[in-house]
Nucleic acid binder design. Structure first.
Lengths: 330, 330
DNA sequence: TTGAAAGCGCTAACAC
DNA sequence: GTGTTAGCGCTTTCAA
């Protein structure tokens, strides 16, 4: 690999001039600039970003931490991030943690070591140290730590769950079960609260058997429904995301249930596929692209030292499709 | 951010000793090592990877280039790559190009500029220069350049398509249409050849109207089927991937067709969802995890300078499910 | 077993 | 407008 030295030698100038020709072309004479450019082309030089970053401590790169690349929910968010990033000249690197905080640490390391300027985390499964606040440029999207002031963009999880369950109640359902994500996850805690709020408002008591835990994956939804089906008689089911809802729906169908006749299902997210399943999935839509765009915009503000702590709460929307219907006595 | 200097100062040793305590603990005295470790802990030191990489010219990081993060096909491949990478102490960074060769170049830049040691590309949509061979450590997976000797891991695309179409022919279908990916894509060219081979062997001529082009996305499959349905009367459809097959299947159903009674559909990949749609999708399975693992193993060999050119062809398998059935006169 | 010192490739102050 | 020089934080000879 050719270095800046060789280019300088060939162009007959100093390395500083070569550097300037690249970083601030206008402050080097037209003629020398062309010599430099010719030399760069001739030796096939490409600057060593590591050395450059070491010097400037800026990489124009950001890292996005994703807990599970198999969960399609994150794809659109990433796209939103990329749109803004590209406009502002940032590269986006993705890190899949497979729900592993240790792996997440590797990606955070990129920021600490200046290989990336900032990080957007789509998961709260991060190393413990970090959960007590951090000095690195970081924004959380979707998930969050309730007690620490990290800039966040998210939805109102409790209100969203409340809306879903209220909708089912209004359809006349009384036995409403739900499949949660990891129970200690803040967004799941909030959504559970929304469920309870709606049920209690309607005068129903909470049955512990009406709840099962998954990990947001399709398979976990499938498995959770099988357990639920054995332990609790329900006419409606609310799942904390669409992947699990789709898994649960498949499980229900293969257990011989008709959706929505025997079981109404409501999910959350609104994935690409959710409108194309059979039946089409009723769900609470999260504005995925907007979440990504907003997160990136906030990160850019932070990087420009306009330090802001914001807790951005975006709007959700109930999309009624055909996996849910009015309760009917069987 | 504390540097090695501060640690050295606090521990009362030289920076060299601190460095050794981290890199080669055994060659520093037990006692000093403990002093160093204490100092590291006290100041909260974490080595600056940039500086380290600059020195060692090795980043223990690899980049995976993905053409479309929304296509679930790549998720399992990435997981395969990660498994091996982690075992060998490599970090994996993902770059989504949104089918854009310019963006792909940004990610290749990471390797040129030493921010990453090598690259695995899951797409052939790369800058033109690169297609004439490259000196950077790189392996292609799934897609490939037919004429350049880049180590590759892939399936036998022609044989796989042949197998799919042959299967439909054996079911008695004659009017077999197909939805291709981008027509200039080498894997699509190979799969088209497989289609033609099977049709011609069976004594059928090739009807240009029996073909439509998509971009491997769900939506493109949906749209392609609508066009196809207008221009060609078919009893069976082969799609070059599952995403498009699922899109086409939804389109067919909403046009009032019964799958598989009115239309048999065969896809390719075997996505997580493909076995859970209704009807379940018959498809040609690609060993996604194995593709990822193999690609990473080859890349590691290359990085260890055991330069190998390999063209690894992995096995596919026809999975007969319920989206296809014997041809019946209507 | 440890320290001094050179240098990875680059950019930015400062001089000319 | 351009060159000289220092130094980003680290690893690694070379000597002691």
């Amino acid at each position: 690999m050719p270095t800046i030295k060789e280019v300088a030698l060939l162009a007959g100038v100093s390395t500083a001039t070569v550097s300037r020709a690249m970083m601030n072309p206008q402050q080097v004479a037209e003629k020398t600039r062309r010599k430099v450019e010719a030399a760069i082309a001739e030796v096939g030089y490409s600057p060593n970003a590591i050395a450059r970053n070491l010097r400037t401590s800026e990489s124009k790169t950001i890292v996005v931490i994703i807990p599970d690349i198999e969960n399609m929910f994150f794809a659109k968010i990433v796209r939103g991030i990329q749109t803004i990033a590209q406009q502002q000249g940032y590269k986006v690197l993705l890190g899949d943690t497979v729900h592993n905080a240790t792996l997440a640490n590797d990606y955070l390391e990129l920021v600490r070591s200046k290989q990336a300027d900032g990080v957007i985390s789509l998961t709260a499964e991060l190393p413990k140290v970090l959960q007590h606040g951090t000095s690195m440029p970081m924004v959380m999207a979707c998930e969050y730590f309730p007690d620490f002031p990290i800039p966040t963009v998210r939805i109102d999880n409790q209100a969203a769950a409340y809306q879903a369950v209220k909708y089912l109640l209004e359809l006349g359902h009384k036995q409403i079960a739900y499949i949660s994500g990891p129970l200690d996850n803040p967004i799941c805690i909030a959504r559970s609260a929304g469920y309870r709020q709606a049920m209690q408002e309607a005068g129903y008591s909470i049955n512990e058997l009406a709840k099962e835990e998954g990990d947001f994956s399709f398979h976990s939804g499938h498995a959770a429904f099988e357990r639920l089906h054995r332990q609790y008689k329900m006419s409606a089911l609310f799942c904390f995301n669409d992947m699990m809802a789709l898994g649960a729906m498949r499980s229900a169908i293969s257990l011989g249930l008709k959706v929505p006749d025997d079981l109404s299902i409501v999910g959350m997210d609104d994935l690409l596929f959710s409108q194309y399943t059979d039946p089409q999935l009723t769900t609470i839509m999260q504005p995925q692209t907007l979440i990504g765009e907003t997160a990136m915009q906030i990160l850019i503000k932070i990087l420009n030292a306009k330090t802001v702590h914001q807790d951005n709460v975006l709007q959700t929307q109930l999309l009624v499709r055909s996996s849910s219907r009015r309760y009917q006595k069987l």
